[in-house]
């Protein structure tokens, strides 16, 4: 447990110091949200209708943008080999690194997103359901991004491939994330519960898949 905390702390410090992937994700997120109203025009009703969907899609793409950072650097500088020889299983290492990605990238974005949604004239009454759904969903996003990142470990410019591999897995999160925030109050609770179920399933299965891919690369 202590060793996983050490890994978590290191990855978050690295994300904060290096900027890089995290900075790109945040920058991308802000750029889209600032440019979109200018592109679509000042019609407030249209913006309001589009807002939740735009926020979700931007979150998805931002997470994907930073996904290749999860394992690639540690693979290139040999840290991953040393980690594979630690007394912790590679599954737990993969899980911890995905959690670090969530804490450093996806979680801050998903907390900030609903409030940035004000730029898109987001209806104020769905700010809280949206925040909740995004916090829940973003954890699954990071966990699934870990699978993509581990599968494309030593590919230069693996970003595109990560998107193709992982986007199909993101669709259910998008669907239920949207239904939680589409404005029908009866749908909020069931949608959040299904999102929680998706997240819990990813929590169990994603690290196993990621670790299997890592082992194949380390061989």
């Amino acid at each position: 447990m202590k060793l996983l905390l050490a890994l978590l702390r290191r990855d978050i410090i690295l994300a904060a110091r290096q900027g890089g992937g995290v900075g790109t994700a945040v920058g991308f997120f802000l750029t889209v949200l600032v440019l979109l109203p200018i592109g679509i025009g000042p019609d407030q009703a249209t913006l309001q209708r589009l807002a939740p969907g735009v926020l979700w899609i931007t979150l998805l793409l931002s997470v994907l943008l930073s996904a290749d950072r999860i394992f690639q650097q540690d693979f290139e500088d040999g840290s991953l080999e040393v980690m594979a020889m630690a007394p912790a299983s590679l599954e737990l290492v993969a899980l911890t690194k995905a959690v670090a990605h969530w804490l450093s990238t996806s979680l801050p974005l998903s907390i900030a997103a609903p409030f940035l949604g004000i730029l898109l004239n987001l209806r104020t009454e769905i700010i809280w359901p949206l925040t909740l759904a995004m916090v829940l969903g973003s954890f699954a996003l990071s966990l699934l991004a870990g699978i993509g990142a581990s599968l494309t470990l030593n590919l230069r410019r693996g970003g595109l491939l990560i998107s193709i591999l992982v986007l199909p897995l993101y669709v259910p999160i998008l669907v239920f994330g949207m239904s939680a925030t589409a404005g029908n109050p009866e749908l909020i609770m069931p949608s959040l519960l299904i999102l929680a179920a998706i997240t819990l399933t990813s929590l169990v299965l994603a690290p196993i898949a990621a670790a299997a891919a890592l082992r194949a690369y380390l061989r």
């Binding site: 410090i13 290139e76 840290s79 080999e81 040393v82 020889m85």
Partner: peptide, 15 residues
């Protein structure tokens, strides 16, 4: 139970 020192350093520039 082993240390493996490979060609790569397994150290982080930002730390």
């Amino acid at each position: 139970q082993a240390h493996y020192i490979a060609h790569s350093d397994a150290s982080k520039s930002a730390l």
